[in-house]
């Protein structure tokens, strides 16, 4: 297998499992806790995050490589990326509303929620700090964003199904609601730590 394909596969697996945005890196915890009461909404949120992360990684890669790095302004990455992501999400929302109303109906309510999601910014910043070489290229950057979004979807759907069960079971009064949900999240995160030993290549 060519080394480039190996790297791509490695990026996919690490973003999905070993470096899962939510359960290992603990980015984007607010939607993880907030939108995980039903599996349907969790899937919707996951799809929206995956979509936005892919687009945002592509856009921030361009801004970073054609504007910030040539001008030696890497220290402004965080600020510039927030600006880029927020505008991109707005434009995408308008575009979807006009061109793909069905997709807008499905993602519509989640898109504005993601504008300032730290997982999206996190993906862009991790990309920007990946350093020189193929890892920092355009394709790997976008793949990292999409795979990170898929990892987010995996985590939030898993958590939503756990929460539905937890809500229906007997638990001490003081743990009801968010406390037990946080404990459940911690246990799932602990389980995901098991993937950190995973070395494919």
């Amino acid at each position: 297998m060519s080394s480039e394909l190996q790297t791509l596969l490695g990026i996919l697996l690490s973003a999905l499992l070993t470096e899962n945005f939510i359960l290992v890196k603990f980015y984007g915890i607010c939607p993880f806790m907030g939108v995980s009461k039903k599996i349907g909404t969790a899937i919707g949120m996951g799809a929206a995050v995956t979509f936005v992360m892919g687009v945002a990684c592509a856009a921030t890669w361009a801004v970073d490589n054609f504007l910030l790095i040539p001008l030696d302004l890497q220290y402004m990455q965080t600020l510039a990326f927030i600006l880029v992501i927020a505008s991109i999400v707005q434009v995408v929302e308008m575009f979807l509303k006009k061109s793909v109303p069905s997709l807008y109906q499905a993602l519509g309510i989640y898109l504005p929620l993601i504008t300032t999601n730290c997982a999206v910014l996190g993906a862009a910043l991790v990309n920007a700090q990946a350093g020189e070489g193929f890892r920092a290229g355009f394709l790997p950057s976008v793949l990292f964003g999409v795979a990170g979004g898929l990892g987010f979807t995996l985590a939030i759907v898993l958590f939503a199904s756990v929460r539905i069960k937890v809500d229906k079971s007997n638990c001490p009064e003081c743990f009801k609601g968010f406390p037990i949900a946080l404990i459940a999240a911690g246990l799932i995160a602990l389980a995901f730590m098991g993937f950190s030993g995973l070395k494919v290549f």
């Binding site: 504007l67 402004m76 510039a80 880029v84 505008s87 308008m94």
Partner: peptide, 16 residues
């Protein structure tokens, strides 16, 4: 740079 970036995105949003 940041001002220009903001201006460009602002224009893009307005056109969009």
């Amino acid at each position: 740079v940041l001002g220009a970036l903001g201006l460009v995105f602002g224009l893009v949003l307005a056109i969009a």
